[in-house]
Amino acid sequence: MNRRIVAGLDGSTESVAAARWAAREAELREVPLHLVHAEEWETSAGVPVTGADVRHQWAQNLLLETSESLRGEHPGLDISTEWLDGLPTASLIGVAAVSDMLVLGSRGLGGIAGSVLGSVGMAAVRTTERPVVLVRGSEDGIARSGSGHPARDMLMGVDISRPCDRLLAFAFEEASRRACTLRVMHSWSAPPVLGYAPPLYPGIGREANRGIAAALHDLLAPWQHKFPSVHLVERVTVGHPAQELLDAEDGAGIVIVGRRIRRSVFGAHIGPVAHALIHHALAPVAVIAHD
């Protein structure tokens, strides 16, 4: 695997914001940045419908102009570019598979939170086993000091019922690099049979919550020991995990969520929580594939 960050460019404001986010991340990790353009992306903006030569020149100009702009912002960063020929989905997944991370733009819909990722980008999220980060165009408008990421907390949602070491490793390593607070949430809902119990036995809900909080703490304890400098905040809530994360994302620099790797004949899936965050979160969303 090549130690590098890959950012996809399609000419949209969101993809430029993604490239700038990727440049900050590459500088933080001290790895090169690789800018790519996959032909015929559904999210492309401003691409003239003309012959292949004109489209190729447009893509090369886009890559050149963006790379030159980023070199001005990050003079010491190693930046390379590539126009991906062939089937765009396969090309993007292929280049992501041999990189540390894939960063893509995610477009909001007017004044409400939404996402238009396009079939190529969504296929990459579903298929690649490397971390994928989706960035909104509004990320460029957030104030920051210097050329690094804004100084904001990180937010992660975890499922304590199954192992998720890749997810935890990504979050703690990233929080350690950024020297920021890592907020970890687990959300649960009471089984229907207990739905009538709290009014009769108020202690049942509190006892269940204490047990879940203890399980979350046990899950995180080895990682806190491995990364003692990370300021960790643990929280257990009652409700739907996706909605609880969306309610808590205000002020977060990135929201991290897992995607179970399912090798099924029916194709890969990203899961309802990751799907909801991709569509509605305002902060950058990191989707981490894990067993």
Rank of each mutant, 00 (worst) to 15 (best):
M1L: 10
M1K: 10
R3H: 12
A7Q: 00
G8K: 00
L9A: 03
D10K: 04
D10Q: 10
A19D: 11
R20Y: 05
R20P: 04
W21A: 09
R29V: 04
V31H: 03
P32N: 02
V36L: 01
E39Q: 14
E39L: 09
E42V: 02
G46E: 05
V47A: 02
P48N: 03
L64R: 14
S69N: 09
L70T: 05
G72P: 07
H74I: 10
H74N: 07
H74Y: 11
G76D: 09
L77K: 06
I79A: 04
T81S: 13
E82K: 08
W83V: 09
D85A: 15
D85V: 12
G86R: 04
T89V: 13
T89N: 06
S91F: 06
I93S: 04
V95F: 01
A96H: 08
M101R: 05
M101S: 00
L102G: 00
V103D: 02
S106C: 14
R107S: 03
G110S: 12
G114D: 07
G114T: 09
M122H: 12
A124T: 04
A124F: 02
A124G: 06
V125K: 05
R126P: 00
R126T: 00
T128H: 04
E129Y: 11
R136H: 08
D140R: 15
I142S: 10
S145A: 09
G146Q: 00
A151N: 11
A151D: 14
R152N: 05
D153Y: 11
D153S: 09
L155W: 06
V158E: 02
S161Y: 00
S161A: 08
P163R: 02
D165K: 12
D165R: 06
D165A: 11
R166N: 14
F170P: 04
F170W: 08
E174C: 05
R178P: 12
A179V: 07
C180E: 13
C180M: 03
C180Y: 02
T181Q: 14
L182D: 12
R183H: 15
V184Q: 02
V184P: 04
M185A: 06
W188C: 08
A190M: 13
A197Q: 07
L200Q: 15
Y201D: 12
Y201R: 15
G203C: 10
I212L: 15
A215L: 10
A215E: 15
D218E: 15
L219R: 10
Q224V: 01
Q224D: 03
Q224R: 13
P228G: 03
V230D: 08
R235I: 05
T237L: 15
G239R: 08
Q243A: 12
L246F: 09
D247H: 11
D247I: 09
A248N: 08
E249N: 14
A252I: 11
G253H: 01
I254Q: 12
I254L: 14
I256H: 02
G258P: 06
G258E: 01
R259D: 00
I261H: 08
R262N: 15
V265D: 09
V265S: 07
V265E: 11
P272Q: 10
L277Y: 10
A281I: 10
L282Y: 04
A283D: 11
P284V: 12
V285Y: 08
A286E: 13
V287F: 08
I288F: 06
H290T: 15
H290G: 09
H290Q: 15
